[in-house]
Amino acid sequence: MSGMHGMDLGTFGIYTFDFEHQPAALVRESVQELEELGWPAVWVPELLGREALTHAGFLLASTRRLRVVNGVARIWSRGARWTYGAAALLADAYPDRHVLGLGFGGEPRPGTTPLVAMAAYLDEMDTLEPVGPVPQGPMRRILAAYGPKMLELARDRAAGAQTYHVNVAHTEQARRVLGAEPFLAVEHPVLFESDPAKARAVAREHLRPYLSTPYNLAKFRRLGYAEEELSGGGGDRLVDDFVFWGDLDTIAGKLHGHLDAGADHVTVQVIGVRPGESAMPYWRRLAGALLPASASAAPSRRASSTAEGMSAIG
């Protein structure tokens, strides 16, 4: 795959916050079923308290083939030396199955910018060598990036970039900045709801935190959204661009738009699932629509319970 030097994450993957608050036994069961369904990769953030590298290690240990991507490990949550050491161990223990996604975040560091902080972090990582044996597989890293300068850093200092909550137009822009070779992964939320009023209400609730921070508001403005589209929970055009809602065929068709615009991989975040319920029924349906037939044909251990949890919104 482009920029990944022989590691294939597939065309579509799963992005989920769910594993940050579920018990380990349920996480293990879920990730094993994702593997059985044929999903090639799962992406996990670092936000609610589970440490990024131990989280990745647990998911890798729970499966045999699944690739695990930190989307993202926050650079201000741990020093570069410890990130490097953990990534080296995972590369040695699970060759070609782990990608270290890095993004700025953690405890604030006044007096610096994300770009300067990330460059310094990479500088320190690049001076280090493994304490133990050289890993069996390469340590692959990507950067969370949106603006052209961070995308350029991802192009020059990593295997590529991951974008989060962007529209298809941004994917085209990001590919132009990165060039042909670097890897580009795009996260996109989806909602299984065909009623426009209901869908947009759920989508606005999901987008609410992103419409209340200066950084994200600046992002939306640069993408051409007018001020009136950024108020009142977001205008219909913005909501529809940033959350793909509808039936399975509609959602799948819109996700392919990112591939047409230059993405190598789209990682899909299902929203609208009520607290305490699982997105697994939707992940099963998406597997049938997005994965190669050979990958998604194997019966899962819980295939008979496809309807389980479908009382979630949509």
Rank of each mutant, 00 (worst) to 15 (best):
D247A: 10
D260I: 14
H256R: 14
R285L: 15
V243K: 07
I14C: 02
P299N: 03
E33W: 05
A88C: 13
L115P: 00
Y15W: 15
A201T: 11
A25M: 06
V44H: 02
P135N: 04
F19M: 12
S304R: 08
S296F: 14
S305F: 15
V116P: 01
A297H: 08
G257H: 06
G235K: 09
V131C: 04
R200C: 07
L128I: 14
G79E: 07
R81Y: 08
Q269L: 15
G49K: 07
V239A: 04
S296A: 14
A218Q: 10
L223E: 13
A52C: 06
A298D: 04
D249P: 01
P189M: 08
F242K: 01
G160T: 01
Q173Y: 13
P189N: 08
G49F: 14
L60T: 10
G3Y: 06
S305C: 07
L102D: 00
V186D: 02
R141D: 01
R67P: 00
P110F: 05
E107P: 01
D123T: 09
E124H: 14
A218R: 14
R285P: 00
G57C: 07
G101N: 00
S2Q: 11
G276A: 13
P214V: 15
D247Q: 08
P209G: 01
H55F: 15
E172P: 02
R222C: 05
V134F: 04
A289D: 01
M280L: 15
P130R: 03
A199G: 11
E129C: 02
S296N: 14
L47I: 12
H5A: 11
D264C: 06
R50Q: 08
I14N: 00
E308Y: 12
N167A: 13
L291K: 09
H165R: 08
A197I: 15
K254D: 09
G38C: 06
A201V: 10
V31T: 10
L184Q: 05
M139H: 01
F17G: 01
T127V: 11
A263S: 08
G147I: 02
S77V: 11
G246N: 04
L191T: 00
H265N: 09
F12Y: 15
A252V: 01
L230F: 08
L255C: 06
G49M: 11
R208N: 10
G106Y: 13
V243A: 06
V202A: 12
G38P: 04
R97A: 04
I142T: 03
V202K: 07
L48S: 08
P281W: 11
A25P: 01
R141L: 10
H170W: 10
E205D: 11
A80W: 09
G105Q: 00
Q173I: 09
R50D: 03
G137T: 08
Q173C: 00
R237S: 10
Y215D: 07
T54V: 15
S278H: 13
T63V: 13
H55A: 11
K254A: 15
D247E: 13
Q136R: 13
A289K: 05
A86I: 09
D236C: 00
D241H: 15
